[in-house]
């Protein structure tokens, strides 16, 4: 249940492109055609699914304050969290290049369709953003981190697919010349983002409030109960 909730949340409510505006550069630059958009989108899902769990382990066992406990008690006081940026980014860049080499060796067909996007991905802020969100939202387990990575990737994939489809159609519309291309893409993306905000409303309107209430009740009712009996 936890997994399903996080999965849909990361696709729709916390959509990388429309809610947090990450990975915009490649989103705008590589969305002229549906086929290339699909390629890049697939590569993003793939890389997020690998790097988020990997960085989760890195965070859990090396970077967090006290994470080095497994090395021995004397290491428990180390706090390497100031290195998170550089470690995360190094992991991502290394993984991207490793994937590139492996794919090139074993599946030239896939490489031809996906390969050109891989270098682009290392600089896609959606990827680093995924890892940083994983860290700041304190995702509790490796499984959930994977779910989060895949979900965010699919969210990004959907977004780029949608804009690419719109851009292919929009080609045949009569847009004012200066607005053609990038200009109209910006504006359409803005409108799509406003549309996606409705998903956010679903979250704050229902589930979350109920859950917050339950939490509060469980926290406060008990001590107060004790007191009334004392009185």
């Amino acid at each position: 249940m936890e997994h399903i909730e996080l999965f849909f949340k990361s696709i729709f409510i916390d959509n990388m492109v429309f809610a947090t505006f990450l990975g915009m550069c490649s989103y705008l630059a590589v969305s002229k055609k549906v086929t290339t958009a699909v390629g890049l989108g697939a590569a993003v899902i793939f890389v997020l699914a690998i790097t988020v769990p990997l960085n989760w382990m890195l965070d859990q066992y090396i970077l967090q304050p006290g994470a080095l406990k497994w090395l021995g008690a004397e290491y428990a006081s180390y706090d390497l969290s100031f290195l998170s940026f550089i470690m995360f980014i190094a992991t991502i860049a290394t993984m991207v290049q490793l994937v590139e080499i492996v794919v090139e060796k074993f599946s030239p067909g896939l490489y031809n369709s996906l390969g050109i996007f891989l270098p682009l991905i290392a600089v896609n802020c959606a990827i680093l953003g995924g890892s940083l969100f994983m860290q700041s939202r304190e995702i509790p387990s490796l499984g959930l981190a994977t779910t989060y990575g895949v979900g965010s990737g699919i969210g990004w994939f959907l977004a780029i697919l949608a804009i690419a489809a719109i851009r292919e159609k929009i080609r045949y519309s009569s847009i004012p010349a200066p607005l053609r291309g990038l200009g109209i893409t910006f504006i359409v993306t803005g409108l799509m983002a406003i549309g996606f905000m409705s998903f956010g409303g679903m979250l704050t309107g229902g589930d979350e409030e109920k859950k917050a209430k339950e939490d509060v009740l469980s926290v406060t009712e008990q001590p107060l109960g004790n007191l009334t009996t004392n009185d």
Binding site: V216, V219, T220
Partner: peptide, 24 residues
Amino acid sequence: ATITGDGVTAMIKKDLGLYVPYFQ
């Protein structure tokens, strides 16, 4: 800033709630 605001509401409820018995 809905989500930040909800975060403020939640942290007041969760953390300050624990102090209630002391004040009672």
